[in-house]
């Protein structure tokens, strides 16, 4: 019996190891890439014994490493958020970008940056973005449950798209009226990992760490969800409380990621889809696997964004959209057949 239960664990361990090695390779490729080729030995040097006067070290430490870190932290948050949302709603198509969380977070960031109702320290910006994400998603949930009292997956997608469009229109209107903000947020708005540098990455770390730990703690309860609501209740899971907690954590992770790298879509959809049948077995290992895969996907997208038309840089969000939209269509098509 021990052998049987550990078979799942070792499979999970192998997947985690695979994911970590891919992540490491992508990180090295990402940092190496750029207008100025820098050998791997110098990279190691820059990290281990940084020299303030060496130009290569400066490039790595203040430009490339922050950008790679932004991809890793933001991608992990997007991946984890997508998985939490899909498991909590028992809907594999639930994706933060499609369901309005990204648009809500963007609107919040643009509002706070433009009108500055309060001067927010950087460390609180992810939480403001999360509030925006939670607010708009709450509206999507309320509208899709209207009349029926159930969260119909198709209605959720419709209302998510409609309210995202509305929020984006508001964002455009605000930005047209405020050119300074537009200048400041232009690249961020299409999804851009170059953004804020090291300081920005540090400022979202607490929020992302909080979200990841909370997500881990929710996994055992969420594992009962795949057996249907009646059995969840019969097994003693607190279904409503767990679902609400999972959605709050989703908003926190998603808002934090958006405040760092902008409203990048489809990472939360692709990261869990990489691993077969992960939604049926939420666990600590599965959650870490999805977070790591999200990080790897965003790193890979950013490598392409930098390299595809070099020296012209593409927005990172365009690349995840190019890869993610077909995945989304494929998942929908598979459901329909």
């Amino acid at each position: 019996m021990t052998a049987m239960s550990s078979a799942g664990h070792s499979r999970e361990r192998h997947a985690l190891l695979l994911m970590l090695s891919v992540l490491a390779v992508l990180a090295i490729l990402h940092i190496q890439q750029g207008a100025r080729p820098i050998p791997a030995t110098v990279m190691l040097d820059a990290v281990l014994s940084p020299d303030r006067d060496a130009f290569d070290h400066f490039v790595i430490l203040s430009l490339r490493l922050p950008r790679a870190s932004a991809c890793i932290v933001g991608g992990a948050a997007f991946g984890a958020a997508g998985f939490l949302l899909q498991v909590a709603m028992r809907n594999r198509l639930a994706e933060p970008h499609v369901l309005g969380l990204n648009a809500g977070a963007s609107l919040a960031v643009v509002l706070v940056t433009t009108y500055q109702p309060v001067v927010l320290p950087d460390i609180l910006m992810p939480f403001a973005a999360s509030l925006g994400a939670a607010g708009l998603f709450g509206l999507v949930l309320a509208l899709s449950a209207l009349g029926s009292g159930r969260f119909d997956p198709v209605r959720m997608v419709f209302f998510g798209i409609a309210l995202s469009a509305l929020a984006s229109a508001l964002v455009s209107a605000i930005l047209i009226l405020n050119e300074d903000t537009l200048e400041q947020l232009r690249f961020w708005l299409v999804g851009d990992a170059a953004g804020g540098g090291a300081a920005a990455v540090w400022s979202i770390l607490p929020a992302v760490a909080l979200g990841l730990v909370a997500g881990c703690l929710l996994m055992p309860q969420l594992a009962t969800f795949s057996l249907g609501e009646s059995i969840s209740v019969a097994l003693g899971a607190s279904v409503h409380r767990t679902r609400i907690a999972a959605l709050v954590v989703t908003a926190l992770l998603c808002g934090s990621a958006v405040s760092l790298v902008g409203p990048i879509g489809f990472v939360g959809l692709m990261a869990p889809a990489l691993w077969p049948r992960l939604h049926q077995r939420p666990s600590l290992g599965a959650f870490l696997l999805v977070a790591g895969s999200g990080a790897a996907i965003l790193l890979a997208a950013d490598i392409l964004a930098l390299g595809l038309l070099a020296p012209t840089e593409l927005p990172t969000g365009a690349l995840t959209g190019l890869a993610g939209a077909p995945v989304f269509i494929w998942l929908v098509a598979r459901r329909l057949t």
Partner: peptide, 19 residues
């Protein structure tokens, strides 16, 4: 009850230990 895709019999039965 729904048919849980991708769970082995052992995995399914193990879910009963949740409480």
């Amino acid at each position: 009850p729904p048919v849980p895709e991708g769970l082995s019999v052992f995995d399914l039965v193990a879910r009963g230990r949740f409480p």
